[in-house]
């Protein structure tokens, strides 16, 4: 299960293919890799598919937008082949269609990679893993974790500020100008309160004997095992295979070609 892969290794395994994929401008390479990622997502990461679609669908619309845009504004060097159709004053050629679809597929790969990581990783464990495996200093790790502690509480904070305004009789905003004022009335106190909290959390951490030095034990110990290396190798091998097959089939097109 991908949930159990060490978070640091997982991040590397997701990041490197992401970068390497950016060299391909053909359709087949990202398509093959996307198929691999989908298989991985649906058979090896227990992500509820409804939840996955909830994230994936809106994002893929964005990817379609990218494809469309690229098609209309293709650089001359890519505007090869016959003209397929005209849209307003744009001419779309076979070459530009190809580039557009390729970039769209690349976006889909990025999205799938991102979801594969985000939906199977606990942020706290990720930070702890960075400290335990990459030797990030505890001061920075816990400092950042303390910042993340605010994430689930923002909603509560917002509710509290809203309640305070209600109780104090701040009136509902009516016009556009009042609404803008209102935004400020919420946004600045929300930020100010968060800053105050941040300062206090730092004090609280020190009051509990946190010194920031490396001599400490871990309640949640994270390790790297063979399985993690296999996962990384699998990701890289899959991408290499996608490039190779695309080359063999004669489709491969790299940047600047």
């Amino acid at each position: 299960m991908i949930q159990t892969i060490n978070p640091t290794i997982k991040a590397v395994a997701v990041l490197i293919p992401g970068i390497l994929l950016s060299f391909a401008f053909d359709i087949v390479t990202p398509l093959l890799f996307l198929v691999y990622l989908l298989v991985l997502t649906f058979f090896f990461a227990a992500i509820p598919w409804k939840k996955w679609l909830l994230f994936f669908l809106p994002l893929s619309i964005f990817a379609m937008g990218v494809a469309w845009m690229t098609m209309l504004y293709t650089d001359e060097s890519y505007q090869t082949g016959p003209v397929l159709f005209q849209f307003l004053w744009f001419e779309v050629t076979l070459g530009s269609l190809q580039v557009g679809v390729s970039l769209a597929l690349r976006s889909l790969c990025f999205i799938t990679l991102s979801l594969l990581f985000a939906l199977t990783t606990d942020p706290t464990k990720f930070m702890l893993s960075l400290m335990q495996q990459v030797k990030l200093s505890p001061k920075i790790t816990y400092g950042i974790l303390a910042g993340y502690r605010f994430l689930p509480t923002f909603q509560t904070e917002l509710v509290l500020i809203k309640q305070a305004h209600q109780i104090r009789g701040v009136q509902r905003a009516k016009g556009f100008k009042q609404k803008w004022q209102h935004y400020k009335q919420y946004a600045i106190p929300l930020l100010a309160n968060s800053i105050r909290k941040a300062e206090r959390v730092a004090v609280a951490m020190e009051s509990k004997g946190f010194t920031g030095d490396r001599h400490r034990t871990f309640y949640h110990a994270l390790t790297i095992s063979l399985k993690d290396w296999l996962f990384l190798a699998g990701m890289l091998a899959a991408l290499a295979l996608a490039y190779y097959l695309s080359y063999q089939l004669g489709y491969l097109r790299l940047i600047g070609q």
């Binding site: 706290t124 502690r149 609280a204 004997g209 946190f210 010194t211 034990t217």
Partner: peptide, 19 residues
């Protein structure tokens, strides 16, 4: 203003880790 973790368990573990 005395807490630095989200869950009770982690809060208490944090103290022990520091020691």
């Amino acid at each position: 203003s005395q807490f630095c973790m989200i869950r009770v368990e982690d809060e208490l573990a944090f103290v022990l880790e520091n020691l």
